[in-house]
Design a protein around this nucleic acid. Structure first.
Lengths: 343, 343
DNA sequence: CTGTTAGCGCGTTCAA
DNA sequence: TTGAACGCGCTAACAG
């Protein structure tokens, strides 16, 4: 029984079949610039490769050339509802750039994240993207520094690593614009936990756009929340029960908007007829369960993923990209929670 | 300037540092069974590797061992809203199985799909998953047969390739159960294009569950749709304007449910008070824009992705898995479009 | 412009 | 148990 092991055809086979050396084959198959190979030879090689069913071996190429053509992405894939969008954007962009994207789950346990990166490093990735589930300063694992690294939806304190984050201020402005367009002048805001980028940016953008339209946002109209539905409920209650209730509330995130809905309905007010609400994050599962549908500002996850890869490609191809901190606009997603102001 | 090129440390370096041969290092690092190595030597090697910061080179290992540890997944990542869920399930499962998942976009152009697979093959994937955007029989590209291959959300006519599909019938049954639970006995169905698995299964399951409860589903109550909102509109109109309008409509998909909503509202009927609607597919973006929220049957994308990988792992590790055609349950997602029957 | 030669880092057989 | 030697498939100097 002579087992003719179906051995995969190699460059040597192609060279033999075409009557040339492996080098020539390599040159032709990678059509290297700066080498002029007779059209006939070229044809012959291509034809032989085709005929034999030759297929490049990426591992061999990676080993020999010291370049894997791989990018890595660590993200909270299982627990974060947003991770899929970042992956989608990054994945597509990588493919366009003729690279594969390796994904590794971090689930934000610091240990696991380092381990995940380690796995990626074993694959000799040429670049790494670390994506966080919320806009924050992160502690970058030591081993991440062994390859070009881009931070997505987060940044490091030192600011040494390039990052791609949402422009929270633009989101705040978008919310304000929408409310202003509907004639609201008595507006309020329920904030996120103080100090985090999302809290600072969203409020700042909101306030700036309002004041540009000569609409005041006094301190009594800014109540502190902590991001939970619970705090949204209390925040809205405080605003509505106060001496001068607003006609519209911009909530620092969708969860708080959910809480606000409860407080509003509890008081017999109708959304959007008597009061308008704008959220932030565009959480599908959440906006989905709210009645009426929540008009909210979305985070540009897909774009951030793509931008991260683009930046990585730029870095690995040597083009020194100076604009290393990118902030992407947060667009408004209209649903049904904003109506015309009564006052 | 003696540039001490920071050459990555190899097994040879570890061997030298530990005073043993590369073979021994290889044995220890891969803790090969059937080899007894003195605890001391073992310790010494591990220590040396740690100290030198040794990191395995996946490409070299793949090349030498002829096993890449990679699985491939082709899917319509950019155009299909469901692809992300399949990816999520498959990705997570692969990681658990200690493998990386390579994703390639197909966008259902037959040419592009083959090209995508070709790229994956160059990476020497050990298994391939082909995922479709709707449950259908597909033409499997020739090159897909060069590695173990599992079909997700689709199947090949010949039935030779293992597949993981949604159990459409279970979804039809779930819809019926929900309506029955709310006391509906006058129910109708708007079908998908005739013949496709989703149409056949959903209707069959729906009908079976009804008849098990002694509820009739006469032919006049089954109107043909084609999957578009337009056809849903007309189907619902036909049902509502007929001699004996139903109290509940099960639509073959969400898009048709959207159309049905219009016909219903146009006739001054309220959902779910006067008529109930159940959809199929659980399309976020769609169910999100409907008022009231659409109760609908979901396709188990994440589970299908995971099951596909699991099957692949089983195949590549040789365990002959006979149950090669897997059908996963479709669970109901309750929102607000089902209410108690008035009649 | 083409062929020769030497690695890339690791798995694995075969002796010792 | 350990070490020497070869091969995996390809890239890249360096000659010719």
């Amino acid at each position: 029984m002579e087992s003719t092991r179906e051995r995969p055809v190699t460059m040597a086979d192609v060279a033999r079949a075409a009557g040339v050396s492996r080098t020539t084959v390599s040159f032709v198959l990678n059509d290297r610039s700066g080498v002029n190979i007779p059209g006939t030879t070229r044809e012959r090689i291509l034809h032989a490769a085709e005929g034999l069913g030759y297929r490049r071996n990426a591992a061999a190429q990676a080993l020999a050339s010291q370049r894997s053509g791989l990018f890595g992405l660590v993200t909270e894939i299982v627990t974060s509802p947003f991770a899929a969008d970042v992956i989608k954007g990054a994945q597509w962009r990588s493919w366009e750039d003729n690279r594969f994207l390796l994904i590794a789950p971090s689930e934000n346990e610091q240990m696991m994240e380092a381990a995940a990166i380690e796995k990626l490093l074993e694959q000799r990735i040429e670049g790494l993207i670390i994506a966080a589930s919320w806009h924050q300063a992160i502690e970058v694992p030591e081993n991440a520094h062994q390859v070009p690294c881009v931070l997505v939806h987060c940044f490091d304190e030192s600011g040494r690593l390039p990052s791609v984050v949402p422009d929270e201020e633009s989101g705040g402005r978008a919310a304000a614009q929408e409310l202003l367009a509907y004639g609201h002048r008595e507006v309020a805001h329920i904030t996120l936990p103080p100090g985090i980028p999302a809290q600072v940016g969203r409020l700042r953008g909101f306030g700036a756009e309002l004041s540009a339209a000569d609409v005041a946002l006094p301190d009594q109209r800014i109540v502190a929340g902590d991001g939970t539905a619970e705090s949204g409920y209390h925040g809205a209650a405080e605003l509505l029960d106060g001496p001068n209730p607003p006609t519209a509330i911009f909530c620092g995130n969708d969860r708080m908007a959910m809480g606000a809905y409860d407080a509003i309905k509890e008081r017999g007010l109708r959304i959007p007829h008597e009061i308008s609400v704008v959220g932030f994050d565009d959480q599908q599962a959440l906006a989905d369960s709210l009645r009426p549908g929540l008009t909210t500002v979305a985070l540009p996850f897909e774009e951030m993923g793509a931008a991260g890869v683009r930046k990585l490609t730029a870095m690995t191809t040597g083009s020194r990209d100076t604009s290393s901190h990118l902030a992407l606009d947060c667009p408004l997603h209209r649903r049904s929670s904003v109506g015309f102001a009564l006052r």
